[in-house]
């Protein structure tokens, strides 16, 4: 170890030899480097600023104005209205209703998706399983498909009269419910469909996480007489925590914005029981209430950040 600094010392001192660049050359070099760096970064940065970063800021500014679609040609008609949009939001029954629906979607949907994904990943990781690749690809299939197309298919599967689900139930003598036409069952149906579509994504992530757990930990646990369940509780779950956290955050961010499912399957009904915050924002945008829609979208943004922070608190390192 003592020879290492000695060996690197000459190399490290090259830059400080008497013939080092003079100030002007160094300045020119720095300018060159800056120009090169920004030549590579500029095309991306311009598009990024114009279409992403600036709109994030503009959205916030908009949320304090009464901007409507009719004002686009006449910017002077726009007024700052302070927090009006926000106070209106929290007395808007539809917004409150959509917030509750979205919260239910997340609070039930995320754990459900995680449990399904973890069960599938654990089963596929339990060694010596034939057809493993087949199951993995099969479970992942819905993830790559368009939510709109999947929602169209499920709307027909769940049709109370002629849908396949109720047809199958009828075969075993059960009179199936009205699913998407029932105020109590519509939202749970959408949650089930979302879990069905998304658990494959988390499964692949969890599988990678499971395979990173060293096998000798399980051997040691077996020698100590731990049952399979105890191994799962005390070895797998703690070591998988960062992966579970990632899965929870990513799924939560996605579910907080759910939109296509109610748009295609229920149009937010029956009686607004499947209206989501995103759907409400889209509707307000459609009515031309841009300022109001921007305010609602910022509330959603804050909820997304809050959800991520909460999950980091619960699942993050507890050292």
């Amino acid at each position: 170890m003592t020879s290492a600094p000695a060996a690197t010392a000459p190399a490290g001192s090259v830059g400080t030899t008497p013939d080092r660049p003079t100030g002007s050359i160094r300045r020119r070099q720095r300018l060159r480097r800056a120009l090169t760096g920004w030549a590579f970064s500029a095309p991306y940065t311009v598009l990024f600023l114009v279409f992403m970063a600036v709109p994030v800021v503009v959205s916030l500014v908009m949320s304090f104005t009464d901007l409507r679609s009719t004002d686009l040609r006449n910017p002077f008609a726009v007024n700052f209205v302070g927090l009006d949009n926000y106070t209106r939001l929290f007395s808007d029954d539809l917004f409150l209703r959509s917030s509750v629906n979205t919260l239910v979607f997340v609070v039930i949907g995320v754990p459900l998706t995680i449990v399904l994904a973890l069960a599938a990943a654990t089963a596929l990781n339990s060694g010596l399983l034939r057809f493993r690749a087949l199951f993995r690809v099969g479970f992942y299939l819905p993830v790559v498909t368009s939510i709109v197309a999947v929602a169209v298919v499920w709307r027909f599967l769940l049709d109370p009269e002629v849908g396949l689900v109720n047809n199958l139930l009828r075969v075993v003598g059960i009179d199936g419910p009205a699913w998407l036409f029932d105020t109590k069952l519509a939202l749970p149906s959408l949650i089930l469909m979302a879990a069905w579509r998304n658990f494959g994504f988390l499964m692949v992530i969890f599988l990678a996480g499971l395979q990173a757990i060293p096998g000798d930990l399980y051997e040691a646990a077996t020698l100590d007489g731990a049952t399979r369940w105890q191994q799962f509780r005390n070895v797998t779950l703690p070591l998988l925590r960062p992966t579970l956290l990632f899965g929870g955050v990513v799924t939560g961010i996605g579910y907080l914005q759910f939109f296509e499912e109610p748009f295609v399957m229920t149009q937010g009904g029956p009686l607004s029981s499947t209206l989501s915050v995103s759907y409400h924002i889209y509707n307000q945008f459609g009515f031309g209430n841009y300022g109001y829609a921007a305010a609602a979208s910022y509330v959603l943004f804050v909820a997304i950040v809050a959800l991520s922070v909460i999950q980091f608190r619960f699942l993050g390192d507890r050292k």
Binding site: V56, V58, S278, A294
Partner: peptide, 16 residues
């Protein structure tokens, strides 16, 4: 930006 949902930017994007 990875954290920002598409829902937050689409109104100003549309105006732009």
């Amino acid at each position: 930006m990875l954290m920002v949902p598409g829902m937050v930017t689409f109104v100003p994007q549309f105006v732009l």
